[in-house]
């Protein structure tokens, strides 16, 4: 708020704007002073403004209640439609992996998770929950059974092959596995998916991979499961000690095997090596 002195100086500046400008700002100032004075006067004004506030609040609540009611209705009809859709396509959802994936995607888009609980209406309606729970159990079994070979790192393709073979079902897709593995994630950091460009890897040992370690896996993925200090240098331009450190960690975690080849020591991921070999064999 401007003091009279400030006002005067400002007025001087504004003189160039002509007589109208001058008188308007003078008026404004006066009215400002008046309001200031009026506000200071009387309890009535205060009460009046409070009353107004109260009315506004009432109206607001009214509107909110109305909105909520509408939303409820919308939600009900949405749920109904979704149920209709789900029961109509129940067979497709259970049988067709592609359809199942699309249904999952759609649910994810609208923020509904049909796998969140096996007791939800989804499970009752579709048995989707059970499908993924069973799959999760199988994934865990396969991963544990092969851990002694691959050190707890297995390609998604191999996992899929094994599960399809074991279950004698070809209607399971890799996106089913991904959904199921993400569900297992709820139980802790035991199961994780490591994306490495074209292929996913399932890590089934309870440890967090560092960023560097994941990058090493990615490099190995491109190279039949093998990495070495010079290869990592070529790929990421990491200084030698950094390459050695991350390789040492991976050896300590028994994820990679050392090959003391005559030229240079190389390091191998058994899981990736096998996955690549199977592709060649096929």
């Amino acid at each position: 708020m401007s003091t009279p002195r400030e006002f005067k100086t400002r007025n001087k500046e504004k003189r160039t704007l002509g007589p109208f400008a001058q008188s308007t700002s003078e008026c404004q100032w006066r009215s400002l002073q008046r309001t200031k004075m009026r506000r200071r006067v009387g309890v009535a004004a205060v009460q009046k403004s409070r009353q107004a506030e109260e009315m506004f609040r009432q109206k607001k609540d009214e509107l909110a209640a109305l909105e909520l009611h509408q939303l409820d209705q919308q939600l009900d009809s949405f749920k109904q439609k979704l149920e209709e859709f789900a029961s109509k396509h129940k067979k497709d959802i259970q049988k067709d992996p592609d359809f199942r994936r699309k249904f999952q995607e759609m649910c994810a888009n609208i923020g509904v998770d049909p796998l969140a609980s096996s007791k939800g209406f989804w499970a009752n309606l579709l048995g989707v929950g059970d499908f993924y729970y069973e799959l999760s159990v199988q994934i865990i079994e396969v991963c544990l059974a092969t851990q002694h070979i691959n050190g707890g790192l297995m390609s998604l393709t191999e996992l899929l092959n094994r599960i399809r073979r074991g279950k004698n079902r070809s209607d399971i897709s890799s996106s089913d596995l991904i959904s199921a593995i993400k569900k297992i994630g709820v139980l802790g950091s035991g199961f994780q998916l490591v994306p490495t460009g074209p292929e996913w890897y399932v890590q089934s040992v309870a440890r967090e991979l560092s960023v560097d370690q994941s990058e090493v896996i990615q490099a190995a993925e491109k190279n039949q499961g093998m990495v070495s200090v010079s290869l990592l240098f070529d790929e990421y331009k990491w200084p030698r000690p950094r390459c050695e450190k991350v390789l040492k960690e991976l050896v300590a975690d028994n994820l990679i095997w050392v090959d003391l080849a005559p030229e240079e020591a190389t390091y191998w991921f058994p899981g990736i090596f096998q996955a690549k070999r199977e592709i060649i064999d096929e």
Partner: peptide, 16 residues
């Protein structure tokens, strides 16, 4: 598998 012919330094891996 090339590293199969190198005795592994990690004892868990070596046991496998």
């Amino acid at each position: 598998f090339p590293p199969f012919f190198t005795v592994q330094p990690n004892s868990t891996t070596r046991a496998k």
